[in-house]
């Protein structure tokens, strides 16, 4: 029983790192993806092409490789070293390490690229007539986007978004590669002591978390269903 409690508390601590990475990535990547999607549908060709290439690179190379490049390359090229936090708040300093910050940057950029394509699909799915109607009513482009288009886009992109967001919580395990001490790191650590079950136990943490996310997304979808045309 003591062993079970010890494993549980260690895995919980690891999972708090995973969830922190998940939440912070979403906070950064959701708006960043929208900005990128504006760039990739821009009529200004250099901007559009530049960001299309960026999205191509981010979606076209393994995330693990991107994490490696973002964490090690600046130091290897003598540019800069990722900062550390010394707030003195033990849990925070233990969780938000140099490694965590580098992983957060990598995840945010990578997921912003995927999100941007989902946003783009959503925006382009809105019929041109609505933009034209807005213009006839004398609305500015910005007004049309935020008052007419955005809510419809949000409703349409929720299923693909929830898919991507569920993938994200499992992808956080890749941060392990640069020794971010997430739940899978500790599960593997117990394997050194000859315990295999913590690995399956760790799987249950993800399952429960994804279960909660699924319920939340279903609720949100239902809430937005009044929009059905």
């Amino acid at each position: 029983m003591g062993e079970f409690l010890q494993v549980t508390s260690q895995l919980l601590e690891g999972f708090s790192t995973s969830v922190m990475l998940f939440i912070l990535t979403l906070i950064i990547a959701l708006p960043l993806g929208l900005i990128i999607s504006f760039c990739t549908i821009s009529k200004f060709a250099p901007l559009r092409i530049f960001f299309k290439v960026i999205v191509w690179i981010l979606r076209g190379t393994p995330l693990m490789l991107q994490i490696f490049v973002i964490f090690y390359l600046p130091g290897l090229l003598n540019l800069f070293v990722w900062p550390t936090m010394d707030t003195g708040w033990a849990w925070f300093d233990r969780t938000i390490t140099t490694r965590f910050i580098a992983a957060l940057v990598a995840f945010s950029i990578n997921y912003a690229a995927y999100f941007s394509e989902i946003y783009r699909g959503g925006i382009e799915s809105i019929s041109k007539g609505q933009f034209e109607a807005g213009q006839v009513l004398g609305m500015t482009k910005t007004q049309i986007f935020f008052k007419v288009v955005l809510l419809q886009v949000i409703k349409r992109i929720i299923p693909p978004m929830s898919n991507e967001i569920i993938t994200l919580i499992k992808d956080t395990a890749l941060a392990n590669f640069i020794s971010v001490l997430d739940i899978l790191y500790w599960a593997k650590d117990f394997m050194l002591d000859g315990l295999i079950w913590p690995l399956f136990y760790a799987g249950a943490f993800y399952l429960v978390f994804v279960g909660l996310l699924t319920i939340i997304f279903n609720r949100v979808e239902k809430k937005l269903s009044y929009f059905r045309v």
Binding site: F68, F71, L76, V81, F177, S179, L181
Partner: peptide
């Protein structure tokens, strides 16, 4: 003292981590 991935010790050193 930080935990690293043993296989990456050279990259950890050279990147000044």
């Amino acid at each position: 003292i930080v935990i690293i991935t043993w296989a990456q010790k050279v990259a950890e050193l050279n990147s000044k981590q």
